[in-house]
Simulated assay, not measured.
Amino acid sequence: MTEVPRRLVFVHGIGGIRDAEAEAASWSAALTRNTDLTSIQVTFVDYSKEFHVDGAQGDPAIETELLQELVAELVAELEENASTSSERVLADARMQLTATADQGPGEVVRRLANVLTTVLAMPGLRSAGQWASGRSVLGHLAQVAIYLGRAGEVDARIRARVHDALTAGPAVVVAHSLGSVVAYEALHEHSGPIPLLVTLGSPLAMSAVVWHRLTPRPPRTPECVDRWQNFWDCDDIVVARPRLERRFLPNTNGVIPVSRQIDSVGLWTHTATKYLAQPLVAAQIADALR
């Protein structure tokens, strides 16, 4: 039987430079708001500065191409489940995407930012308040392109930070956004037991950009994971394909992701703290830690 952990390892997602101590405190506070958890050892994996060191930026043309694919897929997958009120907005975004085909890198980036600004006008996203403009969304999505572009071994350095956090023994791993991609790949390289993996607002199943570039292949649950719970918010723009169990094979113990929808109230639906404050999310983590 796997040892019951009293440790939480948090892995953050897209965004700016982090203050690990402050983030660990705010994530923990959001989690414990709806639980009776006490005396939990928390490790916050901060890899945010890796995107700003020499060698992190690879070939601009390759990263621009990845960004084009990422934005195009995001729009396409939003169109699959679009409401009637969103169809016109997404048709406008699709038309703008077509115009990026023969542009130089600088113009492509500008147009992609405009596409995302259009997408943010969708009824559900218009009130979400996560980003002020398409350019701010694009700046954060660029981190996904950098990680998956794997220039200068930035992806390996980021995963090494997860490995360092797991050396102390069994832990519940909670990974948000791009952090779910990082944690997924790191756990495939990890041999110790992980009683529970929780992914929040995950882009893992995005076909063209993320899912097809994951290692190892074919994508499957890491062998060390005993349970995998995946949560998404219906107004989270980063989560176009939320049901990971449709795209990931089980590990040899038959473990597959179990995806559940939550509905956050108010602004900033993509933040980790918004997810962690949800009673359903907190209950799953608390049960694994008791």
Rank of each mutant, 00 (worst) to 15 (best):
C224A: 13
R247G: 00
P242H: 03
A240N: 01
P203S: 09
R260K: 10
Y275M: 13
P242M: 05
R217T: 14
T221M: 04
S264T: 10
W211Y: 15
Q278E: 14
P219Q: 02
F248L: 12
A208M: 04
A240G: 06
D263T: 12
I256C: 09
L200K: 07
L244G: 01
Y275S: 04
P279V: 15
N251S: 13
W228E: 06
S207D: 12
E223W: 06
L200E: 08
P222F: 10
A208F: 00
P222L: 11
P279Q: 14
Q284M: 15
F231K: 00
G254L: 13
L200M: 13
D233L: 02
L214N: 06
V225C: 12
G254P: 13
W228M: 08
H212E: 15
F231S: 02
R260A: 11
D236M: 07
W211P: 00
I285G: 02
T273I: 08
R217D: 08
T252A: 14
G254H: 14
L200A: 10
V238R: 06
V209I: 14
D226S: 15
Q229W: 05
V281I: 10
V225S: 09
I285W: 07
Q278P: 03
P216E: 12
I256W: 07
N253Q: 15
L197Q: 04
T252Q: 14
